[in-house]
Amino acid sequence: MPKSQKPSSGLVGAGLLIVDKEAGMTSHDVVSRCRKLLNTRKVGHAGTLDPMATGVLILGVERATKLLGLLALTTKSYTATIRLGQATTTDDAEGELLTTADASAVTDEQIAAQIAALTGDIQQVPASVSAIKVDGQRAHALIRAGEEVTLAARPVTVSRFDVLARRDVPADDSGPGFVDLDVDVDCSSGTYIRALARDLGAALGVGGHLTALRRTSVGPFTLEHARTLDELAEDPAVSLDIDQAAQTAFPHRQISAEEAESISQGRWLEPIGRKEIYAAIDPSGHTIALIQERGKRAGSVMVVRPATLR
């Protein structure tokens, strides 16, 4: 379906908007801009992306905002640049410089060994300026207020941590030499890439921080689905209408017209032995509901097209 075509069945404008966020904007800034471009207040985002980062940010529009909490966005992919030889207060380029060290003697073999130690199922201490809540307040807000914050390590999975390129900057009158690494990372939700940069630099004894970050995918949604805000301004419509969104994000179950009518009115279906949430698709290709099976009932966790809208 062309991006400019509106979804049918009374759900005009509903769907997911995959934004290729530019640097310098908060996720809230993106939501605010999209509300204006799409002329609706019903826009929300699934997860956040740091202001310095670019890339995939998922927004729900109109009725699809109800999808956001159900999306299985458990895997994410990034490209990033890590600078070895400098540590900062925020573990990224926006923080103040804490330490400097000459990283020019660090070998590729040493880097590979420490990256291997940071790959797989690991315990990671999040960056202290993260949005994690401590006693009901965001860690970054406590840091700005001058309080010390110590966050507990938590389990994350780094399934891929590959070095794509190395660039050595030799020492000069302005300071010691450092090393920039371009990397690709696939990881579980909740993994902090800047914490990987920090921990890699610390393990190598020279310090490290993140200088660039681009998110290339979140779950099944990639940069191929994404548009910049300038592109959205030229064609203000969702990236995936609510049918495409549900059928991209969830496995499917084909149902009859009679079953579609039943589930649209809040009744349940016969289970088919699936554990995960799935989309119930009617004969015309519309997503009627998202279903989860419990015991002898397959009931809706979200009715996408209630009888009143069909």
Rank of each mutant, 00 (worst) to 15 (best):
K3G: 11
S4W: 14
K6M: 12
K6S: 11
S8E: 13
S8F: 03
S9G: 02
G10N: 10
G13Y: 05
A14F: 10
K21V: 03
E22V: 09
R35V: 02
V43L: 10
H45D: 08
G47N: 03
L49N: 08
L49T: 03
P51Q: 08
V61C: 13
R63M: 07
K66P: 00
A72W: 13
T75K: 15
K76H: 11
S77I: 00
I82P: 03
L84D: 00
T90W: 07
A93T: 07
E96T: 14
L97D: 03
L98M: 14
T100N: 00
A101V: 00
T107M: 12
Q110T: 06
Q114R: 15
I115H: 01
L118A: 13
L118Y: 12
T119H: 09
G120T: 13
G120R: 11
I122Y: 02
Q123G: 11
P126N: 09
S128Y: 11
A131T: 09
K133I: 00
V134M: 02
D135A: 14
D135P: 02
G136K: 07
H140Q: 08
A141I: 07
L142T: 06
E147C: 05
V149P: 09
T150S: 15
A153D: 04
P155K: 14
V156R: 13
V156Q: 09
S159A: 14
V163M: 14
R166D: 00
R167I: 11
D168L: 15
P170T: 06
A171G: 11
D173H: 10
F178Y: 15
V179C: 11
D180N: 12
L181R: 05
L181A: 06
V185T: 04
S188C: 11
Y192K: 05
I193G: 06
R194S: 07
D199C: 09
L204G: 01
L204E: 00
T211E: 06
L213M: 12
T216L: 09
T216R: 08
F221W: 12
T222S: 15
A226L: 06
R227L: 13
L229K: 01
D230P: 01
L232C: 01
A233C: 08
P236R: 08
A237I: 01
L240A: 04
D241N: 15
I242P: 00
Q244N: 06
A245E: 01
Q247A: 12
A249V: 08
F250T: 05
R253Y: 07
S256W: 13
S256F: 12
S256R: 12
A257R: 14
E259H: 10
W268Y: 14
L269P: 07
G273T: 01
R274W: 04
I277K: 07
I281V: 15
S284E: 13
H286M: 04
T287F: 12
T287V: 15
I288W: 04
I288D: 00
A289K: 04
L290D: 05
G295I: 09
K296A: 14
R297W: 07
G299V: 06
V301K: 11
V301R: 10
M302S: 08
M302Q: 12
V304Y: 01
R310H: 05
